[in-house]
Design a protein around this nucleic acid. Structure first.
Lengths: 107, 107
DNA sequence: ACAAACTACCTTGCATAGCAATGTAGTGAA
DNA sequence: TTCACTACATTGCTATGCAAGGTAGTTTGT
């Protein structure tokens, strides 16, 4: 999978999943991996950054299957950013589609 | 516009336009700009790189409206790469859509 | 003749984000 | 006690887009 395509989009994916409910990092990696190849080394710094920027809060929960899990919860501010980012993404994809399909409809 | 989204995608756009017919750099900037914000400082190095990699050939044409134009022509190898890249892009977008719409269809 | 605006090319240095590789620890099964 | 899995984390590398700058030719207005 083209690494470059993912730039900025994984952030959108994390927001989208957390909008549905709290998750811990490892869980996010697995959920996103169902559809997009992703590495742990990407997710953890990303979560750290977005938390620092105030878009997520965190809390620890003990686990019986391994070390404690750090759950992430989206904030109101995070929700705002998510909505904007999602719209930006959708219109970007539309723009790209116009470019790559321009030939198909030309006379 | 989110700069990160464009990573790798502008390459796809350039391929797509050149697949329809030869273009010079400045013309590509204008065509892509109809749909996506782009800068000259992005396109020229990109064209240079893809030419160096054997995906384009170039030829100069005198212009009556300014300096000579450097036209780019896609090669057979370039066409191959374009097809792969386009498919990668389409399946990537599909993957992302699955992630960001997962909530909409959950019971 | 001169300046501004447009066409058309190009380069340098910076910022960003994803990843491979690596490390730490806890749990559970062979 | 070793392997596999869960779960966290960090470092250094790479790739790409952009702002800002430059060079040159053409056209238009004054």
């Amino acid at each position: 999978m083209n690494i470059q395509f993912k730039k900025g989009v994984l952030e959108l994916c994390v927001f989208a999943i957390l909008e549905e409910g709290d998750c811990y990092g490892y869980e996010l990696v697995n959920k996103i991996s169902e559809n997009i190849t992703i590495s742990e080394g990407t997710i953890y710094p990303l979560l750290r950054r977005l938390t620092k920027e105030g878009y997520f809060t965190t809390y620890l929960v003990e686990s019986s299957e391994g070390p404690p899990r750090k759950y992430y919860k989206i904030t109101d501010e995070g929700l705002e950013v998510y909505k904007n980012l999602k719209n930006q993404w959708l219109s970007f994809v539309e723009g790209v589609n116009h470019v790559i399909e321009r030939g198909d409809n030309l006379e």
